[in-house]
Design a protein around this nucleic acid. Structure first.
Lengths: 252, 252
DNA sequence: GTAAACTGTATCCATCGGACGCTGTGTAGG
DNA sequence: CCTACACAGCGTCCGATGGATACAGTTTAC
């Protein structure tokens, strides 16, 4: 059995550097890294929807079919883009403040990368083969929770939820994955609607009146604070339950 | 100024029932509601990507251009689909357990709807005009937080974060918005990779060993529990700070 | 030196969303 | 009643998308 990676063999080989360079034939004028870099630039400026094979090829001064010599198709190109844009995972070992300080720093670092590449958090949804850089980010966050008394499964859940928190509070304005034109500001529109039909939404009307209703962080600070508070409560409970909680023990 | 709704005037008029029926001309054989229902069915079974004008028209036994008499384009069709699939917002007034019980019930209800329409949570991202049903869901959640001492902005943040939590723990298998084929199980692939390069990811390896590693809820229960714990801490703090100390639990 | 391997190109295809114009039909005003 | 207008549905065309295939040029291994 040669194909240990199943249907994603090509993507895995590409991401994990298992491609063997060709021995004969002309020198390649391109490289996967260069293609991915151009595609990443397009996605950064014009959104993920603007990344087409033709445009990427055009910016590289080749025909679009030339790209298929390096990537098997668009999914593989996207995988290369993700791995490139993720960048090197952060090293949180020197961050003070215990697990919470480390996670807060992790949130900051991740938010910076995701702000530079707004398409990135929405491309990493769903089950798919991950590359070493991307796995390194998860490793970085998990390692912050090592020794907290949480089980392995809880650590994975906690980190997964944290990723989702940042993802959902990311600005959607330049993601470019939605059919809506992000330029238009919809908030005055919704305010007009609330003003017309406010009697049908009393709680919402009450909540929106008196707020600045703009230029917020989509509740990221609020959400992360609340979530880490809850996580801290669990960790403290674990610490007070057993003097030495081991992984694998089933909690109540 | 006739157009008070800006560039989204057509969508808003459609969603909020401001369309005037024509007086003359042949009887329409279709309706926006019927079109949206068929499109919703396609998205439910084959994913959002399978919804094309041609296919929707084909299942209605008309040409695709006939649909443009009812919806101005695909964004408007999607808006109608969202509003239809959202369904009637839940009434949580009779749910016991205070704000937390109501929100937990809200999570349950929302998860049910989103499980029936896996494409729905990912279509509702970004700023866009919302319909009355969708706004009703937000109203329902906000009303659960009324009287908790949270400010309006905090209520909005809290609900927004809650939506995101459920969205991110939704199964992606049938969303149909991703280029990856969701059928393939990637987990054994990642386990193989972790087994090969485990030394580069020690914390991750430690966290995954010993866990069942499958058939989880993507951490939804964990995340919601942690988040609501944190929210409860804030609400209790507000209650003890404020002038009116209501019946609340002691903050941790 | 030759053949195999490899690169890039050109052509072709199906499908997508959408614009435009046409024909037929039904109601409203005279 | 009858005609004019407004609306429904259809056919045709367009540009862009991802992708398959066949072919010409180039470089290395034997």
């Amino acid at each position: 059995m040669e194909n240990v990676f199943g249907d994603h063999a090509d993507v895995v080989e590409l991401l994990w550097g298992l491609r063997e360079p060709p021995s004969r034939g002309p020198k390649p004028t391109l490289s996967v890294e260069r293609i991915a870099r151009v595609a990443m630039g397009i996605a950064d400026t014009d959104g993920l929807a603007a990344v087409s094979m033709q445009r990427v090829a055009g910016e590289l001064d080749v025909t679009k079919m030339a790209l298929y010599r390096y990537v098997s198709g668009k999914p593989e190109l996207l995988a290369a883009m993700i791995e490139l844009a993720a960048g090197d995972p952060p090293d949180l070992s020197g961050v003070p403040g215990g697990w919470r300080g480390k996670l807060e720093e992790f949130v900051r670092r991740l938010a910076i990368v995701w702000r530079q590449h707004p398409w990135l958090p929405w491309s990493t949804l769903g089950d798919r083969p991950m590359g070493p850089r991307e796995l390194g980010w998860i490793e970085s966050a998990i390692s912050a929770l090592a020794g907290t008394g949480l089980t392995g499964e809880e650590q994975l859940d906690a980190v997964f939820i944290l990723f989702g928190l940042i993802r959902n509070t990311q600005s959607m304005s330049t993601a470019g994955t939605q059919p809506w034109d992000a330029d238009k500001n919809v908030k005055p529109l919704m305010q007009e609607l609330l003003h017309r039909y406010g009697d049908r939404f009393p709680a919402l009307t009450a909540a929106t009146t008196g707020t600045t209703c703009s230029s917020r962080d989509n509740g990221r600070e609020f959400g992360v604070h609340r979530y880490l508070d809850g996580l801290e409560a669990l960790i403290n409970q674990r610490a007070s339950d057993g003097t030495r909680p081991e992984a694998g023990r089933k909690p109540a």
